[in-house]
């Protein structure tokens, strides 16, 4: 490509008096060009953002709606998940018992060892409800003030992963938060 064959031989006859001109090589050293090429490649590799971010939809309810207009969740299908500091999760099914006996703790993702993963809890709950799961299952997510944005996004993502149709992001109630504080204070 870079070298062009010059003078294919017997093109035109040269007379005896014609001096033969010195044949110069047309071969160009491409090494600096390759160097430059790779330098630019490195530059573009470093500046490029390969994995482009994605958008996750979030729809909030109209909180100006009156209480009586709001959907009432069936107690059997309700699962309340509370998020707290250091990625701790607490949850209870149905209504919170007076003595807090159904208030349990969990971890993010799958179960590992003794710690129960929130994903397995959601799957169990779905199986328990069976065919009614899509209609009756409502997951209420209540992050407290010490949880992070990541916790919330992870939890919302968990809803997508497990195909939970109804879920809501709700403000945590004072007794629930007290119970979390009490549990965290006691476990340390």
């Amino acid at each position: 490509m870079a070298d062009i064959e010059s003078g294919g031989g017997g093109g035109h006859k040269k007379g005896p008096g014609v001096k033969k001109s010195k044949k110069l090589s047309t071969r160009v050293d491409l090494t600096p060009m390759v160097d430059l090429g790779f330098l630019l490649i490195t530059f573009f590799i470093f500046t490029t953002t390969m994995s482009s971010p994605t958008a996750m939809k979030l729809n909030m309810p109209d909180d100006t709606a009156k209480d009586e207009e709001q959907n009432k969740a069936k107690e059997s299908g309700a699962l309340t998940i509370m998020l707290s500091k250091n990625d701790h999760i607490y949850y209870y099914e149905g209504k919170l018992a007076e003595d807090g006996s159904n208030f349990k703790s969990a971890i993010f993702g799958k179960s590992s060892g003794d710690a129960k993963g929130i994903r397995d809890i959601i799957i169990e709950k779905k199986q328990k409800l069976g065919a009614e799961a899509d209609k009756d299952m409502v997951v209420v997510i209540k992050p407290n003030e010490e949880s992070t944005f990541k916790n919330t996004v992870d939890m919302l993502d968990e809803m997508t992963i497990n195909g939970v149709k109804k879920y809501a992001l709700v403000k945590i109630s004072v007794p629930e938060n007290q119970l979390i504080k009490l549990t965290e204070g006691g476990s340390k």
Binding site: M56, K57, L58, K110, I161, G163
Partner: peptide
């Protein structure tokens, strides 16, 4: 936003693989 009547959002996140064996997977 909700006080101004905007209820639909898009959260910007980075992509992640769906864990195998789940509903979405």
């Amino acid at each position: 936003f909700t006080k101004n009547g905007i209820y639909n959002f898009k959260l910007i996140t980075m992509p992640e693989n769906v864990p195998s064996g789940t509903y979405l997977y």
